[in-house]
């Protein structure tokens, strides 16, 4: 069940991505409505992170394209924010929580300009929104996993974007923080912003999200939560990979070159 909409905020057209020789996403084609809280669901290795990385231009697509606000990514970068997985960075980096959140203001600043008082106030506000104001001066390696995650989200807030892609923002976060974050995302979508979250708990997904994308290397479903959260689609998503896709992937892997790359 793949529902397309008019005037989407995100449009992905026939996107195909492989890592090296290994195809991870097959012909994903979807559109997402503005102002919604979107969950990306799927088992490990389903290509959830890859999908948002490909949309953000962080991994190269073999074919297909994506458009944000009906434009190329480069034209709307100021309106888009990306939250990488917490484990993707070395938290031993010499910086305070505030330093990291300030990074969210960098692309508005441009070259040569240093962040000043205005940026610092903005960063403090954002830390406050995720309940981390008291930890502003703390060295980031001394924060717990959940606190580090909140620092990342505060940094995204400091970007003052319209569209947010978050890669597993609830990993390592306790239940009450997760609830508070969902509350925050709800406030953001109520203001017309769009928040897209990689998630893997199907039980909470039903409660959290307006719209669900279900992935299992190919797109299983994309549509309003109430319509796509069905037994049948969940089985398709989580009930093992399509064996033909896996076999084809094996052949490509062994071929010594990648026929998908033209």
């Amino acid at each position: 069940m793949i529902q397309h909409i008019e005037n989407p905020v995100v449009e992905v057209h026939d996107l195909m991505v492989s890592y090296g020789q290994n195809p991870v996403l097959w012909n994903v084609d979807l559109s997402l409505p503005a102002g919604s809280l979107v969950g990306i669901l799927g088992p490990n290795g389903a290509g959830k992170s890859t999908l948002i990385k490909a949309i953000m231009g962080l991994v190269e697509a073999n074919s297909g394209y994506s458009k944000l606000f009906d434009q190329e990514l480069n034209q709307v970068r100021n309106k888009v924010s990306y939250v990488p997985q917490r484990e993707s960075v070395d938290w031993d980096f010499p910086a305070s929580a505030l330093d990291i959140v300030m990074m969210g203001t960098y692309h508005h600043l441009g070259l040569l300009k240093r962040p000043g008082k205005k940026e610092k106030e903005l960063a403090m506000d954002c830390l406050d929104k995720v309940n981390m104001k008291n930890f502003a001066g703390r060295q980031i390696s001394e924060l717990s996993g959940g606190q580090q995650q909140r620092v990342f989200i505060a940094r995204a807030l400091a970007q003052q974007a319209e569209l947010y892609f978050m890669d597993e923002p609830f990993a390592g976060v306790d239940m009450s923080t997760e609830k508070a974050l969902i509350e925050l995302f709800r406030e953001m979508t109520a203001e017309g912003k769009t928040v897209i979250v990689v998630h893997h708990d199907i039980y909470s997904a039903g409660k959290y999200f307006d719209w669900l994308i279900m992935l299992n290397m190919h797109l299983v479903a994309s549509g309003p939560t109430a319509e796509v959260l069905t037994e049948e689609l969940l089985t398709k998503t989580y009930g093992g990979k399509l064996s033909t896709l896996a076999d084809l992937g094996e052949i490509i892997k062994k071929s010594g070159f990648n026929p998908l790359k033209d």
């Binding site: 990385k53 970068r77 924010s81 990488p84 993707s88 990074m103």
Partner: peptide
């Protein structure tokens, strides 16, 4: 010194640096 903040983001979090268009 000119690229101080750019190098800082890049070293700490490369994918984020790329996502903000650096």
């Amino acid at each position: 010194l000119v690229f101080y903040k750019e190098f800082k983001v890049m070293v700490f979090n490369r994918s984020f640096a790329e996502s903000i268009g650096l």
